[in-house]
């Protein structure tokens, strides 16, 4: 183990494991709140985009259907890091640089570009989940509704969507749980969220294990409740309950 470097003005006797965390707790909490805020905004973006794209892909919409399919496939099959780079480095070359105040909070270019990329990346997955849910409704339902004289949009609104919601909710929970974890990637463009604060404190104090333990605990504080929610959704809405069969007598 490397010797832990003493901090400049800290008294020698007051050192203990976890001091770097206790001293920098406000930074960690600031990072955690930023992670949560980014995720909320990205979730709103992704849900809006996802619903629109999914509806465009299942209703007759001509060229928009092609466009929506291209968006979903392209954003699903390229790394989030590349998309973040595209928005962060690419948009300024076109003369677009985000810098605005939203609800009294000043939003810089890196945070805005990162959130937009995260939202659009997740939106592609959301659209795919919603589309799968809409298509899973038996064709007879749509045909019956149409033959009763309901329009395409009425059929969607009154017949298909209420049935699709319970199919779509568990996968959506998984997608948003993954989004929470993916938000760590925004560190690479300097968004000061939880992971960034960890790297920053590590670079300042060199107490790698304390910082890593702390950041793991903080991420678990965010992801475990989310995971519990997903599990609850799966149990509530899955018609075939998750089976807890154990291979009896299997010696492996």
């Amino acid at each position: 183990m490397l010797p832990i470097l003493a901090q400049g003005d800290a008294p020698a006797g007051a050192d203990y494991f976890g001091k770097a965390i206790v001293d920098n707790l406000p930074l960690f909490f600031w990072g955690m709140t930023l992670t949560v805020r980014i995720c909320v905004v990205a979730a709103l973006i992704s849900f809006t985009v996802g619903v629109i794209v999914a509806v465009l892909r299942v209703t007759p919409s001509g060229g928009l259907k092609l466009l929506a399919t291209c968006y979903a496939e392209f954003f699903r099959n390229t790394p989030l890091l590349i998309q973040v780079m595209c928005f962060f480095y690419g948009l300024p070359t076109l003369g677009i640089r985000f810098n605005f105040t939203f609800l009294g909070i000043e939003v810089g270019h890196s945070a805005a570009a990162g959130t937009l990329a995260l939202g659009l990346y997740t939106g592609a997955f959301v659209s795919e989940a919603i589309r799968a849910g809409l298509l899973a409704i038996p064709r007879g339902q749509t045909e019956a509704a149409r033959s009763l004289g309901l329009s395409v949009l009425q059929t969607l609104k009154l017949i298909v969507v209420p049935q699709a919601v319970r199919l779509v909710l568990p996968p959506l929970g998984n997608i948003y749980s993954a989004m929470l974890k993916n938000s760590a990637i925004l560190t690479s463009i300097g968004v000061a969220e939880l992971m960034y604060q960890a790297e920053f404190i590590n670079a300042r104090t060199f107490r790698t294990f304390e910082v890593l333990t702390a950041v793991i605990v903080f991420y678990l504080m965010l992801t475990l409740p989310m995971g519990a929610l997903v599990h609850w959704l799966e149990r509530k809405f899955n018609p075939l309950r998750a089976r807890t069969l154990r291979l009896r007598g299997a010696r492996v």
């Binding site: 490397l2 974890k181 993916n182 938000s183 890593l212 793991i216 991420y219 678990l220």
Partner: peptide, 18 residues
């Protein structure tokens, strides 16, 4: 439950110290 970014980072920073 952890981001893969964090795990890569953990390996990169933590293992050399061990």
């Amino acid at each position: 439950a952890l981001p893969s970014y964090l795990i890569i980072f953990f390996v990169f920073l933590g293992f050399p110290k061990l």
